[in-house]
Write a protein that binds this DNA or RNA. Sequence first.
DNA 1: ACAACTACGACTCTTTAGGTCGCCTTTTAT
DNA 2: ATAAAAGGCGACCTAAAGAGTCGTAGTTGT
Lengths: 150, 150
Amino acid sequence: MLKLTKKADYGLMAMKHLAEHADEGACSAKDVAEAYGIPQEALAKILQRLAKVGLVQSQHGINGGYTLTRDPRSISAFEVINAIDGPLFITSCVTVRGECGQSNRCTIREPLRKVNESIEQVLKNIKISQMKEESETIEIRKPAELVTLV
Amino acid sequence: MLKLTKKADYGLMAMKHLAEHADEGACSAKDVAEAYGIPQEALAKILQRLAKVGLVQSQHGINGGYTLTRDPRSISAFEVINAIDGPLFITSCVTVRGECGQSNRCTIREPLRKVNESIEQVLKNIKISQMKEESETIEIRKPAELVTLV
DNA sequence: ACAACTACGACTCTTTAGGTCGCCTTTTAT
DNA sequence: ATAAAAGGCGACCTAAAGAGTCGTAGTTGT
């Protein structure tokens, strides 16, 4: 149903949390998990993935935890989602390794690929720093012109 | 991973097929299934859903099958997907019946809702008649302006 | 060196997408 | 009238992915 996984949700929440608490040093997975009612170990695994791709830095030991490695204004939602859920494809036809299973007769691949690109662009243009609860901070402009006939 | 279900894929393929063969009378589920290598019974169920919401009309008996009820230029990909997969939500936070399970402390709901609306608009602006294999027929315009800061 | 705390990775459980099967109803060609 | 061809509906099965849990290894402060 075209939805993000909970993991991606959690990841975005965690990234936002880290961005907001950057001046207070590292945040442990436990801290973040308790703040939002997320299962602690589940969140830890997500943060580990984010650490693996270099979006956050991990610190062992007492008072350890995670910190952002970059300015939250430069981190897009796409990066986070991609790190957690892997490359996203709107259609099951287009896979990582190439082609459509439907006897290569699938005729909707190309249009949907365009849609996919469009969605990626939307996600790439939303930065962690922009994610606030107030709806006014993000404005979607000219949606009607998004996809047009040539 | 933010992908459409195969059912939705199949549905779009079938709709496109019906649009292209509109002048030849009704197409049976079997015809369409064989044309693209889709399991026949699976496709039949999908076509039944499309018939239920009025996107296609069914005809029993010999030489029966399905026909589009409207001009393919007026049918959007969104309608088809919505009929098959139900309402789509990018985030698992936002459900049909309302609220976020994470103790209502989920802070990314609103920004993601905006993304969701944007995706819906993209899908609403793609019509069945536009779905051709050639990539030139659909142009994504100004993706960089999709989501902007206020 | 020890204890407290954290990250890390393997594993299990649950959900759901995807597909199959069977039986019924409707229509129509003969 | 009848048989064949098509849709209609529901139950069921399977397999994959999502979500969460448990145990282990690694750091750090004292």
